[in-house]
Amino acid sequence: MGQTASLPTTASTKPAEAASGCPVSHKNPDTSPATCPVAHDAPPNPAKCPIDHGGLNPLNQMPELAQTPAPNQRIQLPTERTESSIPRDGTSKWDYPSPQQFYNALVRKGWETPEEHVETMVDIHNFLNERAWIEVLKWEKREYTHDDIQLARLRGRPGELSPKARFWMFAGWLLPSRFNTEPPFDRHDWIVRRPRTGEEVRYVIDYYEAPAELDGSPVFSLDVRPALDSFSSVKQRIAVATEEVWADFRNNQKPDRTVTEPK
């Protein structure tokens, strides 16, 4: 239930790179190498994100990104920021980076990105964030009955494989014909606050690039789940995994009621 969501994304312009998601300035992936265009001091591998998640303003948990054009920038990029649907506290929501801020982050990290693709990359970045939040809410409804959930803070951890991602990588190594052999192109840890109880729950989000659609549109898969660092989260993960196994078993046990008409 909500652990993995495959998300087709259609873009009018095919981006040279795309970005994954996080309600702070972040990234969007592309149909070839699975990469995150905004970098978090990742180890040397393709999974990167050009926005530095370490340099956040302590007042709003947002990186300080310039809205002025970068040197040698050829086209004017929008500076308007889009408000997300993700609550940051009781009165405000997270804002996404403007295309200009996003591009400045890419330039600062040395990423060569065609300026005409930046707006598409930002759209993908925002789309992935919104889908990740929907999956978080699905999990939260199992444990918390109120609708005032907030995203308190987050951390980008590209290049740092979660235990579950390592397991699936090992499965892919053993059975490459059955399991995916590509690692997630990014990872985020989101800290969700439950205001009525004061609890904070850590969620792990692995971002994967799935096979593109027939028309070449990129498809992304998000694996969203509570981290196994509390008894409640462990119990919830076991319950959901059990439900999924039984659902698959029941579907496989259904008799084939197809009737072949005599010729």
Results as ranks from 00 to 15, higher is better:
Met1Leu: 09
Gly2Pro: 09
Gln3Met: 13
Leu7Ala: 00
Lys14Val: 01
Ala19Asp: 10
Val24Leu: 08
Asp30Val: 00
Ala39Gln: 11
Pro44Cys: 07
Pro44Lys: 09
Asn45Trp: 10
Pro46Val: 10
Ala47Cys: 07
Leu65Gly: 05
Leu65Lys: 05
Gln73Thr: 04
Pro78Ser: 05
Glu80Asn: 10
Arg81Met: 12
Arg81Lys: 01
Pro87Lys: 13
Trp94Cys: 02
Asp95Glu: 06
Ser98Trp: 03
Gln101Trp: 06
Val107Tyr: 05
Val107Phe: 12
Gly110Trp: 14
Gly110His: 15
Thr113Asp: 09
Pro114Lys: 01
Glu116Lys: 02
Val118Lys: 01
Val118Gly: 00
Val122Pro: 04
Leu128Ser: 11
Asn129His: 08
Arg131Asp: 09
Arg131Met: 15
Glu135Gln: 15
Ile149Asn: 12
Arg153Asp: 03
Glu160Ile: 10
Lys164Ile: 00
Arg166Phe: 07
Phe167Ile: 02
Trp168Gly: 04
Gly172Met: 02
Gly172Ile: 01
Trp173Gln: 01
Leu174Lys: 08
Pro176Asp: 03
Pro183Gln: 03
Phe185Ser: 11
Asp186Ile: 00
Arg187Cys: 01
His188Tyr: 15
Trp190Gln: 09
Arg196Asn: 13
Thr197Trp: 05
Thr197Met: 05
Val201Gly: 12
Val204Asn: 15
Ala210Phe: 04
Ala212Ser: 10
Leu222Val: 05
Ser230Val: 10
Val234Asn: 07
Gln236Ile: 01
Gln236Gly: 11
Ile238Val: 10
Ala239Ile: 08
Glu243Cys: 10
Ala247Arg: 09
Asp248His: 03
Phe249His: 09
Asn251Ile: 04
Thr260Lys: 14
